[in-house]
């Protein structure tokens, strides 16, 4: 199987990863190697970081998702997956390219944001927020306008200056209503989980290969009762830091791995160099309305 590209890494995987671009770089050995094999149900010396994740003193992580399988993730980049017999490939990829990717980032001192991102004006513009805030939906709408997709769910940043984004892959996870609103059929799309009304939409126009600068961050918020919709630039440093901390993917893993100081400094660097906005929307507001305003805000 051809090696693939993920966040600048060469990935050799026993599990097919169609959402990743093919590796076209040098002939270095793989940075990440994904194998199938037996994985014990507990990690010797492991601490429970969250209900289904243990991490041991060397930084090795063990994630167990009951109906998908176990993922043993070593700092060396060796990843062993013991799938449940009934697990589907899309389900295995979902956790490999989500939770496991987040863990790998923290192991390597990178900053993963819980964000989908697209290319606007030669830079990455990231949409950051909790589940259901419309990250992937906004990315889809920009993709339909011809913008390349940099990441879905996990947007990986280098912590050095000036914090470039390492593109992950052009796949978006979308609920049925978001696809239908965008006039896209769900036929032929893989389901996120068996029986779930959420699908994997792989953006056919190619993704992005090399690192690109982060141009802007939009923290997606739900307009609370009586609040106005709109885009607002955060200016107080402490507000920006708090927003970035909330927006960091699996912050508790970073803490458990002793990366808190590096993460704080990465947050501070972004806060000092990249404009951070809140985008407040009513729960049912159509996403299309905001595209022009976002693009105009980015252009400044």
């Amino acid at each position: 199987m051809t090696d693939r590209l993920l966040c600048g890494w060469r990935v050799r995987s026993a599990v097919a990863l169609p959402e990743l671009l093919e590796w076209q770089g040098d002939d270095r050995p793989p940075d990440l190697t994904v194998r199938l094999g037996a994985v014990d149900d507990s990690l010797p010396g492991g601490r429970t970081i969250s209900p289904w994740l243990q991490i041991d003193g060397t930084g090795t992580g063990l994630l167990e998702v009951p109906m998908v399988g176990r993922f043993l993730v070593q700092r060396s980049g060796d990843i062993t997956i013991a799938p449940q017999p009934e697990a589907r490939e899309a389900e295995i990829r979902l956790f490999l390219l989500g939770s496991v990717l987040g863990l790998v980032c923290h192991q390597r001192g990178l900053l993963p944001l819980h964000a989908s991102s697209v290319v606007i004006e030669d830079g990455a513009v990231a949409f950051c927020g909790h589940s259901g805030m419309g990250k992937s939906t906004l990315a889809l709408r920009f993709a339909q306008r011809g913008h390349a997709v940099v990441s879905d769910d996990v947007c990986v940043l280098d912590t050095g200056s000036p914090a470039p984004v390492r593109p992950s892959f052009p796949r978006l996870k979308l609920w049925r209503d978001a696809l239908e609103d965008a006039a896209l059929p769900t036929e032929g799309l893989e389901r996120n989980r068996r029986g779930q009304d959420k699908f994997h939409f792989i953006e056919p126009q190619a993704g992005v290969r090399g690192p690109i600068p982060l141009r802007a961050l939009f923290m997606l918020r739900r307009a609370k009762h009586g609040e106005q919709e709109g885009i607002e630039r955060l200016s107080a440093p402490l507000d920006i830091l708090a927003a970035l901390e909330t927006g960091t993917f699996r912050m508790q893993i970073g803490r458990a791995l002793g990366a808190e100081k590096a993460l704080f400094q990465a947050h501070a660097l972004i806060a000092g160099t990249v404009p951070v906005y809140t985008l407040r929307r009513l729960p049912d507001a159509p996403p299309g309305r905001w595209l022009d305003a976002i693009a105009a805000t980015v252009r400044g």
């Binding site: 969250s50 289904w52 259901g132 996120n192 779930q196």
Partner: peptide, 24 residues
């Protein structure tokens, strides 16, 4: 509340099956 559950579970319930949610 989803935000509370996601934060304390350390993952997104939107990626789980109903049975996994019941186990978690």
């Amino acid at each position: 509340a989803r935000i509370l559950q996601d934060r304390h579970a350390g993952l997104e319930h939107a990626d789980l099956t109903p049975q996994e949610v019941a186990l978690l």
